[in-house]
Design a protein around this nucleic acid. Structure first.
Length: 260
DNA sequence: ATGGTGGTCACACCA
């Protein structure tokens, strides 16, 4: 089974590219982030036409996450238990959706960006990750053999080598100690980054500005973390840099996990 | 040397 996660940065602007890649790359389950549309605007038909079932949550032009699967899609869950909200009035944003696909509990996650180090949005981000860790620890406490995949755009670069130049990020989000600690806490709860061992030195995201992609100035911020039982099934992984190329590309590349 | 969205046709917001 092949599971992928991809921040598509608007599914309506990108649907042709996404379904074309799904078919070429032989993907069974795709987790998408930043669909940037409401549920009634999501383009189901191209996916259904290829034999995929679709689960999506989107409340506005912001955020939006989806799971599409051709190996079953059951027990869809919008948001994780304890997921913090944002806004006035405070409400859960469309940043987490889960489904069970061929026995694997997959979560498509879009972690808040944080914006700047002194912004309330950073506090929201840290709280969001802390609550995700708490929920994730709970799933493993309930069932140590659970097959869980936490995939998505984490908006954290856990290591210095996950950005092209640490000096540029001296006062930025994504690399700060609290953000890295919040990410590591999820790992310590039992969720391993199964992609990094197969993709050393690679990035998953390149800003549209400043010719970042041709200059190879990217970041590794998209991750698939798996529970211990699922980690034992992983036979490979890749970051598909090709999909960042050309006109009409998302600023993120897809990340693929291969399971036996 | 950015791109997507919405509301309006010039800009604000988010990334």
């Amino acid at each position: 089974m092949r599971i992928a996660t991809w921040n598509v940065n608007s599914i309506r602007a990108r649907v042709d590219r996404v379904v074309d890649w799904l078919e070429r790359a032989d993907i069974d389950v795709l987790l998408m982030q930043e669909t940037k549309c409401r549920d009634d605007q999501f383009p189901d038909l191209p996916f259904v036409g290829l034999g995929y079932e679709v689960a999506h949550v989107g409340h506005s032009q912001w955020n939006g996450v989806a799971v599409v699967s051709r190996v079953g899609l059951a027990d869809v869950e919008i948001g994780f238990p304890g997921q913090p909200g944002w806004g006035d009035p405070v409400a859960a944003e469309a940043r987490a959706i889960a489904a069970t696909c061929d026995g694997v509990r997959v979560w498509s996650l879009y972690v808040p960006n944080g914006r700047t180090l002194d912004d309330p949005h950073l506090t929201y981000k840290l709280d969001w990750l802390a609550k995700l860790r708490e929920a994730g620890a709970g799933w493993l406490a309930d069932d140590p053999d659970a097959q869980v995949l936490l995939g998505g755009d984490w908006n954290v670069a856990p290591r210095d080598e996950d950005v092209w130049d640490m000096a540029v990020f001296a006062t930025s989000t994504h690399v700060s100690p609290p953000e890295r600690a919040a990410f590591q806490a999820v790992v310590d709860a039992g969720y391993a980054d199964v992609v990094r061992p197969y993709t050393e030195g690679q990035f998953t995201y390149w800003d549209y500005t400043q010719l970042r992609f041709p200059r190879k100035e990217g970041m590794r911020i998209d991750f698939a973390l798996t529970s211990p039982a699922l980690a034992r099934r992983v036979t490979g992984a890749e970051i598909v840099r090709e999909e960042r190329k050309g006109k009409g590309a998302s600023d993120h590349a897809p990340v693929v996990v291969e399971l036996d």
